[in-house]
Amino acid sequence: MSKLKLASYWAAACGGCDVATLDIHEKIVDVAAVADIVFWPIAVDFKYADVEGYEDGFIDVCLFHGAIRNSEGEHIAKLLRKKSKVMVAFGSCAISGGIPGLANFKQKDDIFYRVYIESQSTQNPQKVYPQTHYAVPEGVLDLPEFYKDVKSLSDVVDVDYYMPGCPPTSAQIWAVIGVIASGALPPKGAFVGCENQTLCNTCTRAKTDKKVKKFYQPYQIITDPEKCLLEQGLTCMGPVTRAGCSNQCISANHPCTGCYGPVEGVIDQGAKYISALASVVDADSPDEADRIISEIADPAGLFYRYGLPGSLLRRAK
């Protein structure tokens, strides 16, 4: 059997998904035994022109990290889609916008002003903004267009599989590479490298159906390591988050912030979480419930931490 051809790319990403992949350590040598890397900017020196030169469908599997933030991200996503048999949205940025998707709480003009004019480390007295085309004496330089909104990968191309996490754990990445190498691919559209149940279902902390009278920020209380964090007043996203990360945060005594995204069938993790919270709040009146809920700092930023562009809201006005 000929070796698999693998590509990996980052659009608006942090590189954490790449590093999680490299964190399979010496097993990367086993990957090299079954697959040839044909594009992977963080690790290997292929250029866009190389990818353009490949025949359509030349790449067997493309692991695509990052949100679509600008025209270059969209252009390369479309190029890699054309050149790849299988496209995987890898990590929460690609699936639903991820952390870069928090920019949909802001406006493009305000982002530009903050970054290129106002920021304390910027010196730009002529107030120059990046231009998509800029004439220099030797020719014209091009920069991508920064979009008004952050998009997910599936907003711009057809996606075959989704691998959640910010980043996905290395153990899950290794397991998924095994599935890819075996050729026994799941049905199109499947979420891979995760479980089809909530994090709460896999959590061993004691739950007592205790209701919450007050919410806290993690630094405000010392939690009991044996008991459910939500019942102790921390906004743990476990009830609405897909399991599969080996419960990393809750094992470290920190509430889940939801990076594995919503469980199957839920399209809006934040809205689902609001309804989950409603069932744990201990209030005698709607006013009291309002008061208790209003103590949660930045609920939108927390409940849509990894998925504002992919949610029903998509952006704040």
């Binding site: 608006a12 954490g16 928090l102 931490r305």
Partner: peptide, 25 residues
């Protein structure tokens, strides 16, 4: 050819959450 805008979208986020967000720079 890239910008994500952490400088702006961290505004309004609680201070204790910011280290978790900026670790994704």
């Amino acid at each position: 050819p890239e910008l994500r805008g952490f400088e702006k979208f961290c505004e309004g986020r609680p201070a204790d959450q910011v280290p978790q967000i900026v670790s994704r720079i």
